[in-house]
Amino acid sequence: MDLSALRVEEVQNVINAMQKILECPICLELIKEPVSTKCDHIFCKFCMLKLLNQKKGPSQCPLCKNDITKRSLQESTRFSQLVEELLKIICAFQLDTGLE
């Protein structure tokens, strides 16, 4: 393996790690329209609304089981920016390397 191939692999590993961190624990995809709970867990807005609409009253956070309500959800613009920038990095990496 030459040096450039090694560096490509390192970049790919970093991108994969970042994708894992920014993954919704419910749908296991890159978070879309991130919302945070009072317990500071981040999920896709759609995933949380789907969870909350399944029953009346408070639901439980899928990660820590604390009570959550629609009102307690906060849009997470910082995470939204992180996801947007990661998508740009992924696109640039794919253009530069031809890898997916």
Rank of each mutant, 00 (worst) to 15 (best):
Q60H: 10
S36A: 11
K20T: 13
C39F: 01
C91F: 07
C61G: 00
L95R: 11
G98V: 04
Q81R: 06
I31T: 03
P25A: 07
I89N: 07
E75G: 08
E10A: 10
K32P: 02
V83A: 08
Q19R: 11
N16T: 04
I26L: 15
N53S: 11
T37R: 02
R78P: 14
N66S: 05
E33D: 14
A17V: 06
F46L: 15
Q81E: 05
G57W: 13
Q54P: 06
T69N: 14
L95F: 08
T37A: 11
Q12P: 03
K20P: 04
L30P: 08
G98C: 08
C44R: 01
S72N: 12
T69P: 10
C61F: 02
K45Q: 14
F43L: 09
A17D: 12
E23Q: 12
I90S: 15
S4P: 11
I90T: 12
M48L: 05
K70R: 15
F93S: 02
E23P: 01
S72C: 13
R7H: 08
I90F: 13
G57P: 06
I68R: 02
I26T: 08
N53H: 15
I90L: 10
E75A: 11
I31P: 11
L28M: 12
I89P: 00
R71S: 15
Q54H: 13
L52H: 08
S72I: 11
E33K: 10
L51F: 02
I68P: 02
L52I: 11
S80C: 13
Q60L: 11
A92G: 07
Q12L: 05
C61Y: 02
L73Q: 13
L86P: 03
E23A: 12
N53Y: 03
E29K: 12
L28P: 02
L63P: 03
S80I: 12
L30W: 02
L52P: 07
S4Y: 13
L6V: 10
S59L: 13
N16K: 09
C91S: 09
K65T: 11
V14F: 07
K55E: 15
I15T: 02
I26V: 15
P62A: 08
E33A: 08
K65E: 07
I21S: 13
N13T: 06
V35G: 02
C39S: 01
D96V: 01
E9A: 12
I15N: 00
D67H: 05
L87V: 08
D40N: 10
V14P: 00
